[in-house]
Design a protein around this nucleic acid. Sequence first.
DNA 1: TCAGGTATTATTACCTGGTACTAATAACAG
DNA 2: CTGTTATTAGTACCAGGTAATAATACCTGA
Lengths: 190, 190
Amino acid sequence: MAGTGQKLRRQEQLQALLQENPFVTDEELADSLGVSIQTIRLDRLNLGIPELRERVRQVAEGVTAQLKSLSGAELVGELLDVELGHQAISLLAITSEMVFAKTKLARGHHLFAQANSLAVAVIDANVALTGTAQVKFRRPVKLGERVVAKAVVVGGKGTRFNVSVSSSVNGEEVMCGEFVIFAKGLEEDM
Amino acid sequence: MAGTGQKLRRQEQLQALLQENPFVTDEELADSLGVSIQTIRLDRLNLGIPELRERVRQVAEGVTAQLKSLSGAELVGELLDVELGHQAISLLAITSEMVFAKTKLARGHHLFAQANSLAVAVIDANVALTGTAQVKFRRPVKLGERVVAKAVVVGGKGTRFNVSVSSSVNGEEVMCGEFVIFAKGLEEDM
DNA sequence: TCAGGTATTATTACCTGGTACTAATAACAG
DNA sequence: CTGTTATTAGTACCAGGTAATAATACCTGA
């Protein structure tokens, strides 16, 4: 095998370099590791590291996924059922962008986002804004779990609605919350 | 000029298509707009739209900064000041991804996310999870506004902490909330 | 000391998704 | 029917690769 494990060390360095900054060409890598460009290519092949453009594309896509996980759509999660003005149900799968790196437990605000956007969506009005919210996290939610949120309009008068949301994983409640939502006419808003 | 403004309409469509999904080749664009690839190139040149790889790179690079202000990082917003265990301050600029398309008003869960992640960050522990939260949205926050959130640890005993968060725009309070955060040892967690 | 293996480098053909430039048409307005 | 703009076509070239083949370099065990 390699006399002094130079290859191994180099490949580790290569991985470290790319982890730090994936936007580097093979030529630059070859340069900074003091080997030929072919060696870099072989190393990448060996380690299963894709080419620059592919790396950039992966970063770009990952980034958009993260953006969409909290902000892209009107609704956070997937709408399963809705009876406008009465109740709505949505599903949110907990992906790696939503969890703490250390514990793989979902950050509270993602569960909140699902519940809040559902509470807003269930209101049968052009525009609805959250007034107050009170939520309780019953147990941590893990990476990969599928959270079903159910929002029910439990009361309210005029432009003010009370919405109760319960989120559960496999029937076990993980979060519950009470939202006060205000519906607004378009004219008083713009 | 153009007889029926076809060029203008096509260029608008082009921009719309790329806004929606920047990861499309000229060939695919040409195909879906029913023109030749050269026309697409001319249109891009005309509109100052860079090539695919450059667009992907911009998404990957440019948005990393924006991303960190959204959900990827441990904190939503930019940390301005922190005294672990006592208080912390963060800043969140409201971008177009965070608002309702119709009203350009921030969705509640973005403000909640800023506050929640700040409340978790201020706790001086390896792992901290939100137990309960109670928030009140005092007035809508508009696109472009800069929200400053201040989290203060106001009490708690053992592994349980009460954190009070107040968010404001130009000194005017837009949201306030009370969070109960639980600090967890690593061993009971894994 | 030398055969045999791994590691590295070089070379070449080819690919995608372009830029930049030139030239030929097409469409239309006056 | 002529001039102008719009569109399409074609060619040369580029970055940053893949894939394959061949030529060295290096080390190691017998």
